[in-house]
Design a protein around this nucleic acid. Sequence first.
DNA 1: ATCAGCACCTGTTGGC
DNA 2: TGCCAACAGGTGCTGA
Length: 273
Amino acid sequence: MPELPEVETIARDLAPRLSGLRIAKVSHADHPPVFDRHSLPPRTLLGRTVIAVKRAGKFVVIELSGGVRLAVHLRMTGRLIFRSAEEPRPHDAARYLRATLHFRGGAELVFSDVRKFGRLRVFRGVAQTELLLGVDPFDRQLDAARFAELTRKRTTPVKVWLLDQRRLAGVGNIYACEALYYAGVRPKRRVGKLTALERHKLLLALRKVLRKAIYHRGSSVDDYVDGAGKSGRFQNHLAVYGRAGKPCRRCGTPINRMVLGQRGTFYCPGCQR
DNA sequence: ATCAGCACCTGTTGGC
DNA sequence: TGCCAACAGGTGCTGA
């Protein structure tokens, strides 16, 4: 569910609340395992203090004392909800519970996940490297030349390319569709065959739509909630995603749905070439 | 090396 | 109204 704007919103929400808190206890489910196979043991977290909370691709990364980091991937339905020592535990807290960080003083960070796809990883080192992530869409390194180099000779459809986290980190199905719409490019175009102008438009469109979605605190199409359990608003501004059969807001042509890379893909046949 | 296809889970929705 | 196939914001593995 959560893509870059949703994860960014969660990380920004959690940063001031978690910073300075010390982990007293970690409890977690094991079927299927919530810590992934590359993770250091969960007890590595004990006694460490939260230094910062950041985003890397679609991971929330909690930076801890002693050079240890905890990466959280929410996959489709994961939620990270903070509860201060003063707030009561929600009634349905145990439902879909996957892991809890208990902090000294009584606050908690709860990771719940209906579909159980989400994973945690404890590691030392640089997140981008450890998590095999490509360049961030907002990274200054990603200019026209870099974009051209990354896509050169690649025959994969541009939509599929946008979803590959090892090349570009953070873009998911919603924002890939939206960015292509604003760039005026059809999803199945071969990414290596885009013109320089199209690449330029795509990069601008990506940043614009991601920035706007962050401003609106993400899209809640179904499950997504922020670090306080509230919905985002950007679902009300989507141009193509989930709008199959409805008229394009710009030209009136019905929005098309096709399957690309096993994912539902939406575009306007009138506006995208 | 790449890539399509499936697997992982549970819940919701839309068509018949 | 009821049933059930299709679908869901993601990624990892397998085998061609």
